[in-house]
Design a protein around this nucleic acid. Structure first.
Lengths: 212, 212
DNA sequence: AAAATATCTGAGCTACTATTCAGGTTCTAC
DNA sequence: GTAGAACCTGAATAGTAGCTCAGATATTTT
């Protein structure tokens, strides 16, 4: 079935003519649809080809394997969205931190919410998510925020618990954002959950343990 | 391949003789090994049977399908471990909360850490994890802690932000525990991460926003 | 318009997969 | 010791997976 060992031919043609670019685009769109409808495990290159209205061979003209198609889809969605939000993001740096954090969180929750069906599949079914470039990019932004909040919160941190704190903040905020966007109980609004999440963060950064 | 629709025959024999119980046990052990070695997607009933040294038919004598085998494995591990920790858990209720939380977190991190290889596969590759009884059981305990801490922390909460806070705490602590047990960078000890996690919680519960 | 290149097709190959079932073996109860 | 239940076997069924490749079609370059 697989031949993961003999990687050999990971390179494929890049589309150069207009029609080929459209073909690739339709493959990505079909991939999103099949993923949402069938889940990752039942998504096959044959189904993608059928839905895209292209022959199976065409997929392998541009992608070395199934995972490459999925990775390309995710990268295209995230990079496109990040580009759209870039302006808003840039202006955030000037604002007072809790407010900036709040807006960043809103943007992140919205991004996931817009593609909820796909995001659900991606988050809970796709293995090796961390290896995808687009995901790494977003986490890097989160880390920047976390570090800045820690720095501004003053002298409590030494080298070691700064690292620990940042690791936790990144891990926990990621989970919270995903939870708010995809698993939020209907009686809670994203708005109030984000407010409360900011409270968690501010509470933590303001907190001074009695003695260490 | 599958016939999820026509569920029909979900019932199988339960082992009654000693030899059958041993067989089932060896199937579960083999399942754990194959899962760790191959990952969920590449785990097949045939591989499990081969590793367990039983014929493929035997698996279907006791389990209706592949997922049932995996679910049985997880339930057996968690229930067994929970039973082992039951005494420790019970005595926790009396202790002051931050300390109790800390010990509970330690137990949870240890539990995952003891089965790290398997836990990694389970957490990142197994779909519909929430449906497994053993998982629900652990989350329920977590919720109990979160609620008690909120109650003891006094009058800040109204109905709505109490719910929001609990949702966040459960979501975030789950992610933190998994992260500490499975993705902890080597220069950070579980000990200090747990301490810092308790700080996050206590900081949050003590925090009083300026105005609402 | 011919040659070169890009694009696309789909039958076909191999390697699995989950699951069944007819029949054999071992145990337990009478 | 014999009937019947419990247990176990493994060839067989029917299906899907990923992926290749020889060749057809379309576009661009010369």
């Amino acid at each position: 079935m697989k031949k993961r060992q003999t990687k050999g031919n990971t390179k494929r043609r890049a589309p150069v003519q207009g029609r080929a670019k459209k073909t690739v685009q339709s493959i990505l769109e079909a991939t999103a649809q099949v993923l949402v409808k069938e889940g990752y495990a039942k998504t096959s290159t044959n189904k993608i080809a059928a839905r895209a209205g292209v022959s199976i061979g065409t997929i392998y003209e541009y992608f070395p394997d199934k995972d490459a198609v999925v990775a390309a889809l995710l990268n295209s969605i995230v990079f496109e969205t990040v580009k759209r939000l870039q302006g808003r993001m840039a202006s955030l740096i000037q604002e007072p931190l809790p407010l900036a954090a709040k807006q960043w969180l809103h943007a992140a929750v919205d991004l996931l919410g817009e593609h909820a069906g796909l995001a659900r599949v991606v988050v809970e079914q796709i293995p090796r998510l961390q290896e995808i470039a687009a995901v790494q990019m977003i986490e890097k932004q989160m880390l920047a925020f976390a570090r800045q909040m820690a720095v501004e919160s003053g002298e409590r941190y030494n080298r070691s618990n700064l690292d620990a704190g940042m690791f936790l903040v990144v891990t926990m905020v990621r989970a919270a954002v995903i939870g708010i966007a995809l698993e939020r109980p209907s009686h809670l609004s994203a708005e109030e959950l984000i407010d409360e999440l900011v409270n968690v963060m501010v509470g933590y950064y303001n907190y001074r343990p009695l003695r260490r």
